[in-house]
Design a protein around this nucleic acid. Sequence first.
DNA 1: AACGCGGGCAACCGCTTTTTC
DNA 2: GGAAAAAGCGGTTGCCCGCGT
Length: 272
Amino acid sequence: MVRAPFIDKNGLKKGAWSEEEDQKLRSYVQRYGHWNWRELPRFAGLKRCGKSCRLRWMNYLRPELKHGNFTEEEDAKIMNLHQELGNRWSTIAARLPGRTDNEIKNHWHSNLKKRLIKQNGTSDEGNDYSTATCQSEGSHNSEGEAESVLIIDTPPNMILESSSFSPATSSRTSELSSLSPDSGSGSISSSNMGVIEDVCRPLPCPADQSSSGDFWSEPFVADNIYNQDGYDPTSMARVGFGLPLPLACDLYFDDYADHLLDFYQLQMQEWP
DNA sequence: AACGCGGGCAACCGCTTTTTC
DNA sequence: GGAAAAAGCGGTTGCCCGCGT
């Protein structure tokens, strides 16, 4: 089904993900969000490239994802959207809650394309989708909904609705809105930023913690500190513990410094 | 039972776009 | 405004599994 795991020349693991790796990535992203995919695997204790982590999270681990067969409604919607948008899988996926671009793409190639060919008696590969896209701009889609074709700029409400830690898992658009200093209730002043930076500074840099047994170099799992007594990973992600500072600035600033201090103190107690 | 083949899907690759400095 | 870095996207690949012979 998937490629066998192997180590590439850079020492990075490739191929199929193990359950342990999934757990590490899931736990890390749920707690800290994906503040930097390139750096994330190092902090999460994974020997993977950031791209691979991002893909795994986006296509498989996100909690709001559906897994399983496509429904008839979904099939119909994909067919319609593909007719309208062509191979813009991510755009199509944004309009199918719980489905990923990769999943839709695979489903298209393995099922729907053939079905379409069967129906039409010919391939649709020659369709001029760019034309279709242009024609649909500012008009109505096949379901009669008034909308612009520029749906890339529409935050996929599926994520915002279904994910309790949406700032960390949402689309770029929603991230932008959430990260904007002047957006919504989470706005903070530059002086507050200074406070946060001061609070954050003592956090150990992973590069400085190369000795064994420290917090950062240990494989990351849903750690025992917060799992013991009703730790709610979503609330932790919300206040943005740890590194994803911009996410923390998004919301709940009042709580942030206090929680971060608590967190930091707990971590200090854990160290030898 | 053994083998071959095609389907399905997770993951990779390389290019493009966006963001940051 | 330009360069570099990061993120995103779509095409492609690799391989397991089920089915037919």
